[in-house]
């Protein structure tokens, strides 16, 4: 930049607080994005509560519970990685982020087998078994695939976000005194966790 004079409140300065505020605002939009789906869930569940109950027995509570534990653990590791970088321990921070990404992969693998089993049973929209079910149960599976699918997509995005951050830490552009991007990726990851915290009881635990 060729200018000599710069304002104290310039938009070109590194401003961790602005970055954090921006991230939170983005999380609100994500919350409301899923919020729209929770609205649909609420309405259809209130209209077909018995069908939703029956359909929910098709899901494996224990797989869901394991995935919950996996995500909660990954939330802890990413939170700890922020502590590590604040204390200047870059190596530990990277390791903890690696564990988070690993947890994300485990989550997706379990999800893959869950979906695979559902599709094998013909529960994907349009399949034979699916069509023979009452409308309420069909709606349940529509929502199940849509909401967990979108959540899975967020897991992938969050994972990529953390990988980018890891790369930047290795290159040295994120460090002890400038780590807001890591915090942001952490916030995003916690959001993924938060949404799962609600998806889990709504689909698996409504017996």
């Amino acid at each position: 930049m060729e200018h000599t004079f710069s304002l104290p409140n310039s938009g070109h300065n590194y401003d961790a607080k602005a970055s954090k505020l921006g991230m939170w605002l983005f999380l609100y939009t994500e919350l409301l994005l899923f919020g729209g789906l929770f609205m649909v869930y609420m309405v259809y569940r209130s209209l077909n509560s018995d069908d939703f109950l029956i359909a929910s027995f098709n899901l494996d509570v224990w797989l869901g519970a394991i995935n919950t534990v996996v995500l909660l653990t990954s939330s802890m590791t990413i939170a700890m990685s922020i502590t590590a970088i604040q204390l200047g321990n870059t190596k530990l921070s990277l390791r903890l982020q690696f564990l988070t990404v690993l947890a994300a992969v485990i989550f997706l693998v379990i999800k893959y087998f869950e979906w695979g089993a559902k599709i094998e049973h013909g529960l994907w929209p349009g399949m034979e078994h699916f069509i023979s079910m009452p409308h309420g149960q069909q709606l349940y599976f529509y929502l199940y695939f849509f909401m967990t699918g979108l959540h899975g997509l967020h897991v992938v995005v969050g994972m990529i976000f953390i990988l980018i951050v890891m790369n930047k830490i290795r290159k040295g552009s994120i460090h002890k005194n400038k780590h807001q991007l890591l915090e942001n990726s952490g916030l995003y990851w916690h959001l993924v966790d938060l949404i799962w915290i609600y998806l889990f009881p709504l689909f698996y635990l409504i017996h």
């Binding site: 994500e30 994005l33 789906l37 649909v40 929209p125 349009g126 529509y142 929502l143 695939f145 849509f146």
Partner: peptide, 23 residues
């Protein structure tokens, strides 16, 4: 705060047209 809601609603329309997920 309002735009994400239409975003997801429109995605549901697309999902219905392409994947057959109809809500």
């Amino acid at each position: 705060l309002a735009t994400p809601i239409i975003g997801i609603t429109l995605l549901m329309i697309v999902a219905e047209r392409i994947l057959g997920i109809g809500l």
